[in-house]
């Protein structure tokens, strides 16, 4: 039980990370990762929807006929996203002003449907909830890293746009990482998203490669000796 939970966490955050391993849900990922605040905001909104959708799908999985499971899952996801959208607009306006434009995008994010279909339809309620939460957090990390990278190279700033959520006072938190930086427009425009994502995937592969290396050499040594 405990190891299963650990597996879910590790899969979501690293081994099966939706952003840089499964490469799912790229459309919103590439479109809104132009700054750290944007990336993290979309990531957290997606996390909320994924956790809810996985939980709902796990609850009703026995009622869903095999032949029409995809339309029903899409129906569930779309209903949840719209409800989250309305509730946030009504009760947490400040947050909605930042996240609002991204929330409808989540319906078309295939990672949500992918987890519902591949995991929640076959597992228990708690595990499904945890899987949605962890996959969402994994995606959030990638979005935040990509957004942060593009923001630093594009504008020399970090945390710009925070004032949308916390008022003009939050402008004091904007970090000028590279003072007097002219800005690199390429990083802000769409190609920057592709290049940045490529670099993140490469970095992850490199880390995995290095981690795998010692194991292989110790295995090989007795053979060569």
């Amino acid at each position: 039980m405990a190891s299963e939970i650990r597996d879910i966490i590790i899969n979501g955050l690293w081994k099966q990370n939706p952003g840089i391993v499964q490469i799912l849900g790229m459309c919103p990922t590439l479109a809104v990762s132009s700054s750290l605040v944007n990336g993290l905001s979309l990531g957290l909104a997606t996390t909320l929807v994924m956790a809810l959708a996985n939980t709902a799908a796990a609850i009703v999985s026995r009622l869903v006929p095999q032949a029409v499971r995809i339309p029903i899952y899409i129906l569930i996801i779309a209903t949840l996203v719209t409800m989250v959208d309305l509730l946030m607009h009504a009760y947490v306006l400040q947050l909605y002003l930042v996240l609002g434009i991204y929330i409808p995008l989540i319906v078309v994010n295939c990672i949500v449907l992918a987890r519902v279909e591949a995991y929640a339809s076959k597992h228990g309620i708690f595990h499904s909830f945890l899987d949605g939460l962890m996959m969402g957090l994994g995606l959030s990390l990638v979005l935040a890293a990509l957004g942060g990278l593009r923001e630093i190279f594009g504008k020399g700033l970090l945390l710009s746009g925070l004032d949308l959520a916390f008022g003009p006072a939050a402008n004091a938190y904007v970090i000028h990482v590279l003072p007097n930086y002219q800005g690199l427009l390429l990083a802000i425009l769409p190609p920057g998203a592709f290049i940045g994502l490529g670099l993140l995937i490469a970095a992850r592969n490199r880390i995995e490669h290095i981690r795998a290396q010692p194991a292989r050499t110790t295995n090989l040594q007795p053979e060569t000796a």
């Binding site: 029409v68 029903i72 569930i76 209903t79 719209t82 409800m83 309305l86 509730l87 009504a90």
Partner: peptide, 28 residues
């Protein structure tokens, strides 16, 4: 059964959305 399930989920979804909309409309 398949049609019934699809119908049932649609109805539940529609009611959930209508209820949420009614609840949040004044604030929005």
């Amino acid at each position: 059964l398949t049609a019934l399930a699809l119908f049932g989920f649609s109805i539940v979804g529609a009611f959930l959305l209508a209820g949420t909309n009614d609840l949040t409309w004044p604030a929005i």
